[in-house]
Design a protein around this nucleic acid. Structure first.
Lengths: 255, 255
DNA sequence: CGCCAAATTGACTGGTATCAAGCTACGTGG
DNA sequence: CCACGTAGCTTGATACCAGTCAATTTGGCG
């Protein structure tokens, strides 16, 4: 079965020793996702399909009747406000659901766009409801997924509200590396798959500011660019990045 | 039964004619909340209690086993990051649930603090799961509540990320007035019940900036202060405020 | 090769934060 | 009753971070 280009290469990525403390959570997370997918496959026979970068799973305004689960790949959620401003409101990876926020309103509130080749599983919402009533484990799993999404949104809200630009970008990279690692993908080197403008949009910054911050972080050796394609980021020292994201008043020249 | 001080007086508040367009949504919302509460009361026999301003329903870190629904009153959710920064991450009114975001993690991620006398209904999560399996309507209602919470968080994220200070505060007031109106409470005059510092914290601004913006909005006559207590806000012309929140390039002297 | 989107970098501007000085309301105790 | 302290709020002066505008470089692709 075809899967995402970049994300398949190393099954067990090289991980810096200092992240070992995370290995439990990391394996747990992998297990959790696998269990959830198995549960869905067993109870619902989801429609599976491959989509390619740029393809749209749903658009804002479309009638809601299905939910989607990512088996692989990488999506962005783009919301458009009444006055025409666009905003990237979320990013989704393997194990994440797409469409929860449409349940209440009956129609999607944003576009879901693939940034990569991805495998999407689709289930009808009414079928899911029925399956949940019959399979308690599935209902728990769905609630947990929604709860996790809320928690994540809340964290990013907090980060974006309170942190200066350097810390926002660093937090973003840190979160992203962690999310990849938890899914068994390599986290010490990866492609952002987003333009500076999209990152900035997501973080509430301009593309110039994102560019400048990335340069500063590189100068401080918290990240490095892959020669060829500055969209590929290396994280040579994950603990250092983590420390910067927490403390932020360390030796680095970044106040 | 004792209920919130301020929020009970007018059963059907005076509403400026121009908001009539909203009356459908407004009555729908009231009906929806009433239906949900009835559903919960019927299926779960929730524990009901009155809490007073300042009381805490749960604290970050506590083990999760219960969810709460507000029958009346007004809560803030306060999250504390590892490095000690505090942040108001949400506000809750009648019909809102408290605790969803704790499901995934098994423990609460923030404090829930009453800002007013409130009536809280509490249900065990395991009981809710079981009831959901037996009552499809209840499960739908729970999913909708979670979905609505996601949508709201997303909207506020968008507002906070992309808007300048004036618009943030105006959006906040507009949302708040609407939320009160939808619950049948008077929206043309209300108490914020939050200090400038708390509002600023919630909106990613300093208390000084909030104060200045409120003064500017008052000078532009989009809001007015109740003589005595500048924490009581009047909205003399709701459509004007709504127009400002949307367009923002109107006649007002606020660029 | 030449075009175009993306990214980088610099100079300048402006919106918020910060620092600081009062003001107001309210409760406490003399 | 008034003096006093305190918490919340307002307003002004200044500093600085990030946005804006602009010039240039880089990389991808027909």
């Amino acid at each position: 079965m075809q899967t995402a280009t970049q994300h398949t290469a190393p099954r067990v990525p090289a991980r810096p020793a200092a992240v070992d403390g995370r290995c439990d959570a990391w394996n747990d997370e992998q297990q959790r996702i696998a269990d959830t997918l198995k549960l869905i496959a067993a109870a619902l026979e989801p429609k599976r399909r491959i989509v390619h970068a740029g393809e749209v799973i749903y658009r804002a305004g479309e009638r809601f009747s299905q939910l989607h689960i990512l088996n692989s790949g990488f999506f962005k959620l783009v919301s458009m406000s009444s006055d025409g401003r666009e905003q990237v409101v979320g990013l989704r990876l393997r194990g994440d659901w797409l469409g929860f926020s449409a349940i209440a309103q009956g129609s999607y509130g944003c576009d879901a766009i693939a940034l990569d080749t991805a495998e999407v599983w689709t289930v009808r919402y009414d079928a899911l409801l029925q399956a949940c009533a019959e399979h308690p484990a599935l209902m728990i799993s769905v609630h947990e997924a929604m709860s996790r999404e809320m928690m994540r949104d809340r964290d990013s809200l907090m980060a974006i509200c309170t942190l200066p630009a350097d810390a926002r970008v660093a937090t973003f990279l840190h979160y992203w590396a962690q999310a990849l690692a938890m899914r068994g993908l390599r986290a010490d080197q990866f492609s952002l798959r987003l333009t500076r403008a999209e990152i900035g949009n997501y973080l509430g910054l301009t593309l110039e500011t994102v560019s400048r911050v990335l340069s500063r972080l590189a100068r401080a050796e918290l990240i490095a660019f892959n020669e060829k394609s500055r969209r590929d980021i290396c994280i040579p020292d994950f603990p250092a990045l983590a420390a910067y994201v927490e403390g932020r008043d360390l030796r680095t020249g970044l106040h």
